[in-house]
C-alpha cells in the first residue's frame, strides 16, 4: 500500500516529462522535415507549371493555374506502361539476384572459416574501388561476345552472381556478425546443417538488414538510366528511368513534363520505403535470448 502511494507521483512526473519530450521532438522533427521536403515541393510546383511560366525561372515559384494535365501528358507521351513493365522485370530480377548472392556471400564472410576468406574480403572491397567508367567498354565488348546484346541479360544475370553486390555483402556481413553465436551453435548441436542455419536462423533474424538491401537495390535499379542506356540495345526493353530522359532535349526541354514524370516514378520508391521502415519498428530484437 505504502509502496503504490510513493510510486504514483514519480510515475506522473515521468509521464509529464514524456509528453514534454515528445512535443519537443515533434517540433524538431517538423522543422527538419520542412528542409527535407522542400526539394519535393519544388518538383511538384515545377511539374504544374506552363511552359511560359517555366521561362520566368525562379521569379515564379507557384504556378498560377496548376497544370494537372502535365501528369497525363507525361504518361501519354511515352509508352509508360511498357517502360513500367520493363523496369519491373529488371528491378525485381536484380532485387532477387542481389539478395540471393549477397546473403550467401555475407554468410560465408561472417560466420564461416575458410581458407583465404580475409584475402577475398579485401578483394571484394577492392572491386568497389575501381571507377566503373574504365571497365565499361570491356564489359560491353564481353557481353557482345557472349551474344547478350539485344537482350535484357546484361542487366539481370550479373546480379545473381554478386555483380554490384559488394556493398550489400559487406553490409549484411556486419549484421550477420552481430547475431549471437549461441544461436548457431545450439542449432549445430541439434543437427542442423549450414544451409538450414542460413535459411532458418540468419535470414529471419536479419529482416531489417535484408529490407534495407531490398530497398537500396530497388532504388538503384529503378533509377538507373545509364546501365539500360548502354546495355539495352532494343528500345522495347527500355526502362522508365531511361524513357523519361526523352523530355530533356537539346535546348533545356520540357521541364514540367520531366518533373511530373519524375514524381510518378519516385512514388513506388517512397511506398517501398514506408513499408520497409515499418520492419524497423517491429524489430526482431531476440526477445528469447539472454545476453
Amino acid at each position: 500500500m505504502t509502496e503504490t502511494v510513493l510510486k504514483r507521483p514519480k510515475y506522473r512526473s515521468r509521464k509529464r516529462r514524456r509528453i514534454i519530450v515528445h512535443s519537443v521532438l515533434h517540433i524538431v522533427l517538423v522543422l527538419c522535415s520542412f528542409v527535407f521536403v522542400f526539394p519535393f515541393l519544388w518538383m511538384l510546383f515545377t511539374a504544374l507549371k506552363t511552359p511560359a511560366e517555366l521561362l520566368k525561372g525562379i521569379s515564379v515559384f507557384f504556378p498560377a493555374e496548376p497544370q494537372w494535365q502535365n501528369f497525363v501528358s507525361a504518361v501519354q507521351k511515352i509508352p509508360f506502361f511498357m517502360y513500367l513493365k520493363n523496369s519491373l522485370i529488371i528491378v525485381l530480377s536484380v532485387m532477387t539476384g542481389t539478395i540471393f548472392s549477397a546473403t550467401t556471400a555475407a554468410y560465408a564472410f561472417a560466420k564461416l572459416k575458410w581458407k583465404g576468406r580475409d584475402k577475398w574480403f579485401i578483394v571484394m572491397l577492392a572491386t568497389m574501388m575501381l571507377p566503373i567508367q574504365v571497365i565499361l567498354i570491356p564489359t560491353f565488348v564481353m557481353y557482345s561476345w557472349i551474344g547478350w546484346l539485344g537482350t535484357r541479360l546484361p542487366m539481370i544475370v550479373p546480379a545473381f552472381f554478386g555483380g554490384g553486390a559488394a556493398f550489400y555483402i559487406f553490409l549484411l556481413r556486419q549484421f550477420f556478425k552481430g547475431i549471437p553465436k549461441e544461436m548457431t551453435e545450439s542449432a549445430i548441436i541439434d543437427g542442423a546443417n549450414h544451409w538450414q542455419i542460413f535459411t532458418k536462423i540468419m535470414l529471419p533474424l536479419s529482416k531489417p538488414a535484408i529490407m534495407t538491401v531490398a530497398l537500396f537495390t530497388f532504388m538503384g535499379a529503378w533509377n538507373d538510366y545509364f546501365g539500360p542506356l548502354i546495355f539495352l540495345s532494343n528500345p522495347d526493353h527500355w526502362t522508365l528511368a531511361l524513357g523519361l530522359r526523352s523530355f530533356q532535349t537539346q535546348y533545356g526541354g520540357q521541364y514540367n513534363l520531366m518533373m511530373a514524370a519524375s514524381i510518378l516514378i519516385m512514388l513506388p520508391t517512397l511506398i517501398l520505403f514506408f513499408l520497409a521502415q515499418k520492419t524497423f519498428i517491429e524489430g526482431i530484437k531476440f526477445t528469447g535470448i539472454k545476453g
Binding site: 577475398w120 545473381f160 542460413f198
Partner: peptide, 16 residues
Amino acid sequence: ENLIGYLFASPWLFGL
C-alpha cells in the same frame, strides 16, 4: 567448413 565457406561464397566468386 572450408568447403561450405567456398560454396556459400561461390555465386559471388563465380561472378567475379
